[in-house]
Design a protein around this nucleic acid. Structure first.
Lengths: 111, 111
DNA sequence: CATTTATTTCACCAATTAGTTAATTATCTT
DNA sequence: AAGATAATTAACTAATTGGTGAAATAAATG
């Protein structure tokens, strides 16, 4: 088990099923069965994928009777965005302009 | 082996050693031995990590005498950035403003 | 040509991952 | 209390991953 958060997040995202589950959760909360519905997998498999997402902090779960509604938690995605952003200059020539735009944004909304 | 490109990229990035290698390559080309130097791993292990990065399209290799200089290829990182960007609204309230800024950028520089 | 240097391939191993079926737990409904 | 529904846990398996040491390959150098 990789212990650093960034690795856990990248690892959780390295699976199309899990990314599809996040995409579904982006539209709103869903129960485990609702999340499982589009896939040809058994429920225990879905349960395991959910656990991976949960450990990476990408999903949180509530409790409603026998249901365990899942919510998207985007914090770790922000970290991914931050990490990848440091490489933007290597694929995008207009990096400098966006960079300074983001700096502007920062100044406008101080903490 | 997961066949889709996005999964391969996330998977390649889900390892701190490989991310460190990319960070090194961001500073410029490096040989395998140069890349290996900061790590306590054997050369074959490094070679394997490089192969993972290469298969994900994140690294390309040249040929110079017995050296195989490695270069960073940022294309797949752009795809990661694109993927994660669709979730920005979930962690950042000022998404709408950035979104419209990026649309502006698009218009200014068509293809 | 023999040796050194750079790197890869091979054969192996232990741990992890992604899936299964069967059993269990928890809660609601009748 | 009994049955149905939601979800998890357990036990197992096959494939993948991340590492190793030893051998092989490729090119430069004495």
């Amino acid at each position: 088990m990789q212990s650093d958060a960034l690795s856990a997040t990248f690892s959780a995202l390295a699976d199309p099923t899990r990314r599809a589950m996040l995409a579904r959760l982006a539209e709103g909360e869903a129960t485990v069965n609702e999340l499982a519905e589009p896939f040809e997998m058994t429920l225990p498999a879905i349960s395991k994928h959910l656990k991976v997402l949960e450990k990476a902090g990408l999903v949180s779960r509530g409790k409603n009777a026998q249901f365990r509604p899942c919510r998207l938690e985007a914090g770790p995605l922000k970290d991914i965005a931050g990490w990848v952003e440091t490489y933007r200059r290597y694929w995008d020539e207009s990096f400098d302009r966006l960079d300074s735009y983001l700096e502007e944004l920062q100044k406008e909304q101080p903490r």
